[in-house]
Amino acid sequence: DVAEQLTPLLPGGPREESLHFVSELKDPSCSCAVDVSTVWWAAAGRRELRVVTASESTVSLWEPLGPDSWGKVHTWHLTEIPVIQIVPLPDTCNLVCVALGELEIGEIRLLLYSSETDSFKYSLVKTGNIKAIVGLKDRRLVSSSRTMQEQQLEMVLLSETGGSKDRQTLMPPEETVTAFAEVEGMREALVGTTAGNSVVVWNLKTGQLLRKMDIGYSYPASICHRAYSDSGLLFVILSHPHAKESESCGSPAFRVVAFNPRTGRSTGVMFSCLPPGRAGRRYLEGDVWDTAGAAVLTSGAVAVWDLLRGRCTAVLPPGPAGHWALARWAAGGAALLAGHRNGTVRLYRY
């Protein structure tokens, strides 16, 4: 019935045709899925995209068996501390990064295959009260952690064998960092959002905090997803999990904001609102690849947006298996992965 509600409301209808179902994987041993992701995996001389699924106590690696079927290659059992999330490492092969903890992230581990011992294993990268974490190109991992006195930000350069080759401390802002995002095409630049609703910029090579820029109070608790530098401006894609509905624009799920890093001034470029009606209501969690945003809504639907045009381009209503719980873009934007809590993941080409 959600699809029926949406049909007359979305511009041009729900446009499910922009999502094409490709395949499905089902993990009968998974009672409560917490995350799904993809990883590039090189084996026997070829590189392929594999799916990674996580429950509270397991992380499983899936390989494509045919055009529409998947087989489980390996399951890592992590029984001491619950898995909270999978941390994608863009352009990295044969490494799966996971964050574990009770209420907050307490440690970051790498899961990998060792050809030397012909076995799957894991290694510990970091422990602490970790508030935010992001994987960057070239096997780099940035995290913020908090002690009673101070906030520590660190970039770890990972080795192929799951160790840490180098560490670089980043200068912390006064406010707690809530999220990080890489700047496309600028290897040494990193942006973050803070609890005080600012966007901050670092130089990853030197660790310098270059600029703190106010987002404005209209949209509190903004989370950065991606950033692009173009024509001297820094375009940051933000989501607003707690944004309230306003008469002028409905409920904004994502916004593209242009910052002038020289002056710290900003202006909104585009906002993408939740689909109107009962299908939307609130944004629960989402993911951005390039200029495509995807989010799970409180209605149990997954919505997809063209963030540069501010248009909702597709909606996946809750299916027979119930509400959607997870929405992630595959590496390189190859597919949208939509997951149910029962461990079922469906892949769609967008």
Partner: peptide
């Protein structure tokens, strides 16, 4: 957006801010 809203724009903002920021 116009340049006047955002102030003077520099294509080399990253290098300039890195040179100006405390080490």
């Amino acid at each position: 957006c116009s340049e006047s809203d955002l102030g003077p724009i520099s294509l080399n903002w990253f290098e300039e801010l890195s040179a100006e920021a405390p080490p």
